[in-house]
Simulated assay, not measured.
Amino acid sequence: VTPHSRLVWTNDEGGDGGPVTTVTFEEKGGKTLLVLHELYPSKEALDAAGTGAADAMGETFEQLDELLVALGSSVGGS
């Protein structure tokens, strides 16, 4: 973790074939650019993930949206 700019984690639920996910945050024109990379250990591991990985990504961003709303309301209410 690099505070305020970078998160990296290993997705262990995939076993040895799980990807390493890196998310970076960068300020661009008063907004935040979020870039997400997933590195799979092999093409076979990527193929095995199939569309489930894409579906999970949607859920992940929904959770991030909820967190940002909660954090925004707690900051605004201070």
Score class of each variant (00 low, 15 high):
D47E: 11
G14H: 03
T24I: 01
E26T: 13
E66Y: 08
T60S: 01
L34K: 10
L68M: 14
E66W: 09
S78V: 06
F25G: 11
V20C: 02
Q63T: 10
Q63D: 14
G77Y: 10
V69Q: 11
G72P: 05
V69A: 15
A56P: 00
E27H: 08
A48I: 01
A53I: 08
G14Q: 06
S42W: 04
G52E: 05
V23C: 08
E66S: 14
A54M: 04
K28R: 15
E66H: 15
G15D: 08
G18V: 03
D16Q: 14
Q63S: 14
E62R: 12
A53S: 05
A53W: 01
L7F: 10
A45P: 01
V69H: 09
Q63L: 14
V8R: 13
T60I: 09
E44D: 11
E38V: 05
V35I: 11
V69C: 07
R6L: 08
A56T: 07
F25Y: 15
F61R: 12
L34I: 04
R6E: 01
E62T: 13
G29P: 02
T10I: 10
D65G: 00
S73K: 05
D16K: 15
V1Y: 12
S74W: 03
W9A: 12
M57R: 09
A49E: 06
E38A: 13
G15R: 04
A49Q: 02
G52S: 08
V35W: 03
G77N: 13
A54C: 03
T32M: 01
F61S: 12
L64G: 06
G29R: 09
E44Q: 11
G18H: 02
G52K: 12
A49I: 03
G58Q: 09
E13N: 08
E13F: 14
D16F: 06
G72Y: 13
E59C: 03
V23R: 00
L33G: 08
K31E: 06
L64R: 03
S78Q: 10
T2E: 15
H37W: 07
G76M: 06
K31N: 07
D47H: 10
H4V: 10
G58T: 11
V8S: 15
D47A: 15
G15W: 01
S73G: 00
E13I: 13
P3H: 04
W9Q: 05
S5R: 07
H4A: 07
G17Y: 00
L67Q: 00
V8W: 13
S78N: 14
K43Y: 12
L36D: 08
A56V: 09
A45C: 07
E59W: 05
V75G: 06
N11S: 10
H4G: 15
A45W: 03
S78D: 07
L64F: 05
P41W: 02
W9N: 06
G50M: 00
